[in-house]
């Protein structure tokens, strides 16, 4: 067991070391730096992004609507036609992710393709492709939902809470 005095000595060494590190005063003035870095950073083109997101989000919705109408025309009841429509959009997003086109569109479209189910499909497919070389089980299978996992978790949690509230009311 260590004597109390030894322990005290060690504490002193550590304290002395912490106080007398090399010249730790940075050359840059940190206040100046924090202010200046925000000025130097290029600003995101907000209006451009909003308009493009609106246009691309609209295009995704139109494609969805076309398929919805198609399924209804083919004889599905209106309430049940939604699910196959979503499936088609997911399939299309996954397909163009596989062709390596989605990320290029997303760079321009931003939230326009990230917010609809296309963004979800892309995040799953991108991870699946990225980790296919690590094998089916430890790669694709386990990494697939790394990005999308939280969408599922919080989606389910939200649905549960809302369901609970609506059941009570």
């Amino acid at each position: 067991m260590k004597k109390l005095q030894e322990e005290k000595k060690e504490q002193e060494y550590i304290a002395a070391g912490e106080q007398n590190t090399g010249d730790n005063e940075p050359v840059i003035d940190i206040n100046w730096f924090n202010k200046r870095k925000d000025q130097v950073h290029p600003k995101p083109p907000l209006y451009r992004n909003i308009i493009l997101a609106f246009v691309f989000g609209g295009i995704v919705s139109i494609i969805g609507q076309l398929f919805l109408d198609l399924f209804i025309w083919a004889g599905l009841p209106e309430q049940e036609a939604g699910n196959p429509t979503v499936a088609v959009i997911i399939f299309l997003a996954a397909l163009i992710t596989g062709f390596g086109v989605f990320d290029r569109i997303a760079r321009i479209a931003g939230a326009g393709v990230a917010i609809p189910v296309t963004g979800f499909a892309n995040s799953v497919t991108a991870m699946a492709i990225e980790f296919k070389r690590e094998g089916l089980v430890q790669g694709t299978g386990s990494k697939m939902f790394t990005l999308a996992g939280s969408i599922i978790v919080f989606g389910v949690v939200t649905a549960f809470v809302i369901g609970l509230i609506s059941a009570i009311i």
Binding site: H41, P42, F102, D103, A114, G119, N122, I129, E130
Partner: peptide, 12 residues
Amino acid sequence: YPTEYGYQPPGY
């Protein structure tokens, strides 16, 4: 992120 993941990287 994975290479095929679509997002807008900030300008910096």
